[in-house]
Amino acid sequence: MKVYSPTSLQEAYEILASTEAKILAGGTDLMVLWNSNVAKLPQVVVDIWRMKMLAQIDDEGEVLRIGARCTYTQIINNPLTKNFAPALVDAARTIGAVQIQNRGTIGGNVVNASPAGDSLPVLVAFDAKVEIGSLRGVRTVALEQFYTGYRKTVLAADEMVTAILLPKQREDEVSKFYKIGTRAAQAISKVVMAARAVLQGGLIAAVGIGVGSVAPTVIRAKATEGVMLGRQIDDELVTAARRTMMNEVKPITDVRSTEFYRRTVSGNLVAKFLREIV
């Protein structure tokens, strides 16, 4: 195995363009796959851990630019994310435990493309974009469009994710993050949801809901949002939102949970969100 540790973007792009290589960030997904023989060991590895320019969090006005190689620990401690992305901070706190938070990166979570990735519902709910770079240039893709199927992304072989562009939470906006794992720590989500809303004059003026672990990819719960938008929060809305969410998710039964549980809890969590923000 050949391992490159580039320190500049140009260098990294050139390697990716010239050979078939696997990008290694924190390795918290990859090492597990390699160790258990689920994924074959690649011939060439591009270790991006030392690429400092990918490990920054910047304020770009409307959005935060979160470098792909930022760890959860960075996200938890950074004043920008604390102020403008509290739901992402909440999500980061639930990932693995401290060791994983020190090593695991947001770029890794996004590209790993697990439907249970815990940062993803937040990113979807807030209309985040993925910034992608290669020798061919830079492009951005909405997170919702980033996934093309179960564990499939739009990323080409010569591309890498350079940053996540996350719109800041507005001052009049509230957000919640709910992770339902198999236990209190070191748990993969059975259902994970992030929701945000703006209430104006008692009506829901804006809303975004992302749900994970209930479909082949993270989903944006558009139908449920539609039911909620412009409405005032009352029992009727709670019931309608719960029902819509239960129909909108497409969960399966696996070793972590059952379809029925995931469906029911997805509905319950929307109801809980409405109860909590009213």
Binding site: V32, S36, A97, T182, R183, A184, A185, Q186, A187, I188, V255, R256
Partner: peptide, 22 residues
């Protein structure tokens, strides 16, 4: 969890024991 006589959750990530936090 079993399927056709095979144990499905043969890892600590899916055979769930409580942690100190639980």
């Amino acid at each position: 969890f079993w399927k056709d006589g095979h144990m499905l959750n043969t890892r600590l990530t899916n055979y769930i024991i409580p942690t100190a936090l639980d």
